[in-house]
Design a protein around this nucleic acid. Structure first.
Lengths: 185, 185
DNA sequence: CGCCATTGTGCAACTAGTTGCACAATGGGT
DNA sequence: ACCCATTGTGCAACTAGTTGCACAATGGCG
């Protein structure tokens, strides 16, 4: 139940319209909390109904009209409450690990190619994060806000580093294995 | 849409009743694909209806009765198909990173304690994985199946290692920061 | 001027996962 | 013999996330 809080955070960083939010969710925030535009519009409606955000008044509130939202004090308070409240980690779900485990039973046929593909995707993501780090966090930028945001980015970088290493290892390991016995019935 | 495949994998490793499956999902498989007993029972019903598994016949098919399920050939084929089909990685969702980012805007009050708590949880999980590695994968156990399962376990170990390191670093960083300014309005 | 691709907003239906409860059988204690 | 805690199975309702579509405004192009 964190999408509303992700939106509040994004709106506090900068008041935006639904579409702008959607774009920003495709970058930065979306790296660890993704959302489609449909989710975002729906949630903006709810947040407005609850008095957490409001639409900045526009002359023409017609349909295909840009509506910018800003966070109200109640929204900021709610975000602060949520942020500091203790939360249990959600259980992981990783389909790739599950498939590898299944492959131990039904054979590794076909899986190897997909591992390679994932490796490539993670390499790309890692490169993107490193580019962001270079661009947004040059030495010297270390206000409190910068340090915290940098910390989040470091998590992304280290995670992608882990995945590229593990996947490289996995691919190598599968290459050394007997291979695709009983792939399908 | 992988719960049915997680269940098929578990049942191929060993035919089980709903409750046995539930227990095994609290260990091993559940480490990367968690499920509650309610989900499992519901899914077993579906898998049976689709002809992927069947209940081993018991004398008294009454209510509080153990029912053991086994995988049918169609189920194995479906699992093999799913395992080797290419799948895109699901977008991540990590509430802790989101909260950290929110904290850059609304202050870090309260968050630090929870980071420490999470650090402790990840340390415990890491220790558990390492114990499993010692117990189940002594040197020499390296059949194809063992190698694949070990690979999965390694992913778990490396992930928990990452989290403990990152969280240690994050806690240290927060300690050096001005602290809980505008925590709540 | 009219067409139509693009931008921006949104609803509705569906799927997956979670929470809360119910209830039968079993087996040990009194 | 009876109680009741534990084990095992399951339904129903709810919440969150995804997919598919719809439709208005804008602006460039023939």
């Amino acid at each position: 139940m964190s999408l509303p809080h992700a939106i509040l955070t994004a709106l506090l960083e900068r008041p935006s319209s639904g579409l702008e939010l959607t774009r920003r969710f495709d970058k930065s925030i979306g790296y660890f909390w993704s959302a489609t535009h449909q989710q975002i519009y729906r949630e903006l409606g709810r947040l407005e109904a609850e008095g957490y955000v409001r639409a900045l008044p526009a002359e023409q509130p017609a349909r295909g009209q840009k509506k910018r939202y800003e966070v109200l004090p109640a929204g900021r308070a709610e975000l602060a409450r949520w942020t500091s409240a203790s939360q249990d980690p959600k259980p992981h779900r990783d389909a790739l690990l599950l498939r590898l485990r299944a492959a131990a039973v039904v054979g590794t046929g076909g899986l190897k190619d997909d591992l390679r593909r994932h490796l490539e995707l993670h390499r790309r993501q890692l490169a993107e994060y490193e580019e962001i780090e270079r661009r947004d966090f040059p030495p010297g930028k270390d206000s409190t806000e910068d340090r915290l945001r940098h910390l989040v980015l470091r998590a992304g970088i280290d995670l992608e580093t882990f995945w590229t290493q593990w996947l490289s290892h996995a691919v190598k390991e599968l290459d050394g294995l007997p291979g695709a016995e009983d792939t399908a019935d």
